[in-house]
Every structure is written in C-alpha cells, then in structure tokens.
C-alpha cells in the first residue's frame, strides 16, 4: 500500500482519524506522518489494532488479486478449531494455537510486518515443556562456534566443542525417548 499523501513511499502507519464523529482510515509513510505530526498528534491514536486491521486487509486484497483467475479451491481452515482463514482476517484473532501452523504461509509475512521484520522468538522459554528446546538451542550455538573455530584454525578447541555437542545430543535423544 502506498502512502496516500505522497503516493511514493510505502505506507507504514495506519491511523483511524475521527473528524466530527466520522471515521476515516489514513495510510501514511513515516515521512508524511512526521510532517503532519502536529496536526495528527494523538488524534490519530496510532493503535496496534488499526495496524493489524490495515495489514490483514492489505494482504487479503493482494492474495485475492493474485488468486483471481485460479479455479476455486477449498477454503483454508484450521482442522483443530475449524476457524477459516477468512474468519481470521475478519476478526484478527486466532481460534486456537494450531491456527498458527494451519495458516503458516499466510501468517509469517504478516508477523514480520507487525514486529518490525522479526520472525523468530528470542525470549523466554518455558522451563518444564521447553527443556528440549533449551538443549537444541545450546547445540545450535555450539555448532556456530565450531565453524568460527575452524576458520580460525583452532582445531583442538573445535574438537572439545564437538564432544560437548555429542553429549548434549545424547541427552536430547534420551529426553525424546523418555516420552515427552
């Protein structure tokens, strides 16, 4: 979506503007939003929900436009809670955790847009159900450091780390067999 003020840059800010009780959606780029700054101030109340609504509608239009000539397919639906992708677009809420998996392809670009380009979790991991995840993350970081050590030709250290990785992988196997 292009900025409705300059029609040049992509619109990154989506406001609902209320004038005399009449609501209008505004889609502006960062630059124009700043120029209008004083006028907008809070009355634009740039809200996360408006941003989400703007994004979902936008993606929906693009997808419809792309799909237009194709033969009608089964509607995309989450098998765990039977919410359809269309319903999700309308209400902006998922029906269950499995919806993330069911609508993965559609959702991931939207998540990136909503979270400033970030697509991967980088925060807390629940300790009880997340034990295996901790191990896997550790293994991943160790594997990266092995690569670095090898390029620096520190082979002895690299061998040590390789042994560490093996023992962690053993722990992980035991965990997975342990029925969790």
């Amino acid at each position: 979506m292009l900025c409705q003020e300059c029609n040049e840059r992509p619109a990154t800010l989506h406001f609902t503007k209320i004038d005399n009780g009449e609501k209008t959606m505004m889609h502006l780029c960062q630059h124009c939003a700043q120029e209008k700054g004083e006028a907008f101030m809070l009355n634009s109340a740039f809200s996360i929900n408006n941003l989400l609504a703007g994004l979902l509608n936008f993606h929906n239009h693009v997808q419809q436009a792309e799909k237009a000539p194709v033969i009608k397919k089964e509607p995309l639906q989450c098998e765990a809670c039977s919410m359809t992708y269309q319903q999700f677009i309308q209400i902006g809420r998922f029906g269950c955790a499995n919806c993330y998996e069911a609508f993965k392809e559609q959702i991931n670009p939207i998540l990136r847009r909503l979270h400033s380009g970030n697509g991967a979790h980088n925060g807390k991991i629940p300790s009880r159900i997340g034990g295996g995840i901790h191990l896997r993350k550790n293994i991943e970081t160790l594997k990266q450091s092995i690569q670095e050590l090898i390029t620096r030709e520190e082979f002895e250290k690299a061998a040590e780390i390789r042994d560490q990785i093996r023992s962690l992988e053993k722990q992980l196997d035991l965990r997975d067999e342990g029925g969790n």
Binding site: L52, F94, A97, I110, L111, H121, G123, P126, I129
Partner: peptide, 21 residues
C-alpha cells in the same frame, strides 16, 4: 499448566500482535 508454545515463534496468543514474548 502446559502452555501453548512454539520453538520458533514463542508463546502463541489469540492476536498475532502479542505472539513471541
């Protein structure tokens, strides 16, 4: 309580604006 959590995108929430942390 078993939380709905995904290794790649974190804590799964009803609205996608809250997912992750």
């Amino acid at each position: 309580v078993d939380y709905a959590f995904d290794e790649n995108i974190g804590y799964l929430t009803s609205c996608p604006t809250n997912v992750g942390t």
